[in-house]
Design a protein around this nucleic acid. Structure first.
Lengths: 128, 128
DNA sequence: AAATTGTTCTACACTACGTAGAAACTTGTA
DNA sequence: TACAAGTTTCTACGTAGTGTAGAACAATTT
């Protein structure tokens, strides 16, 4: 499965986040990402700054995985998430589900595993 | 995430399968598994037999991951799946879902991604 | 007790990921 | 235009997970 490493996940989180923030920043540069990663990790006061090359490597890998798209025409390349976080999560759920022979049985159990409030939301969606 | 390798998956598939078959065989030995793995791969006529130690290694790892339980008291140890395949799949789905900040949005999209027939099943389950 | 069968230990190759330096390339500028 | 600063690519290493199995050790059978 297309499971992400810790840093890959952190980068995707930033790209997904930028989706909703300042619309001028949907696509970020490696440097912008490096800075935000540093600030993010600032919860632990080690002030750890990654090398830009590290971020670039990760971005290349994410691009190869099809999760990230890069604008190559402009010079500091800009990177953006190909899908929204929600879409991606749904894809993962379907990957997991797809590998099951008895999909309906799984879905049944799954429904039973969500909160009552969420079940209510689903009910509305399904009967709409 | 607790993602499985190819061989680990194959072993789990056999253990999950044995759940529904001959009830005397819910728990299998490493040798039984090795044989079945060979037959399974028989689709490609390489007749590839794994070493029993290979199967045992994988079983140990699966045990460590909590997916498999072994009966140590009897001598050819017997192995069984701790959860059903469906339960396991649901756990995975919830793992994926849990890492999302906006669960309901994901669920909404997810609902839209299943077939109409499955949606119908879910509708019944939710309104029951 | 010896032979057979089963289990544990140890190990190696391969891949994914975090990490980054060195080299190559671009671009702005003196 | 030639150089400096910024950017990207290449290469590489450490670690962890997985597939694979031999060697050594333990239990069972005969």
């Amino acid at each position: 499965m297309a499971t992400l490493g810790e840093l890959e996940r952190a980068v995707m989180d930033l790209l997904w986040q930028s989706d909703s923030e300042d619309p001028a920043e949907i696509a970020l540069t490696a440097n912008a990402l490096r800075d935000r990663l540093a600030r993010k990790t600032a919860s632990s006061p080690d002030g750890k700054e990654l090398a830009v090359t590290t971020v670039l490597t990760v971005l290349s890998r994410l691009e190869k995985k099809g999760l990230v798209q890069r604008e190559r025409d402009i010079r500091p390349h800009r990177y953006r998430a190909v899908t929204s976080r929600e879409e991606h999560t749904v894809e993962l759920m379907n990957e997991v589900l797809g590998s099951a022979p008895d999909r309906e049985a799984v879905l049944a159990k799954f429904i039973g595993s969500v909160s009552e409030q969420e079940a209510e939301t689903l009910r509305k969606l399904l009967t709409a």
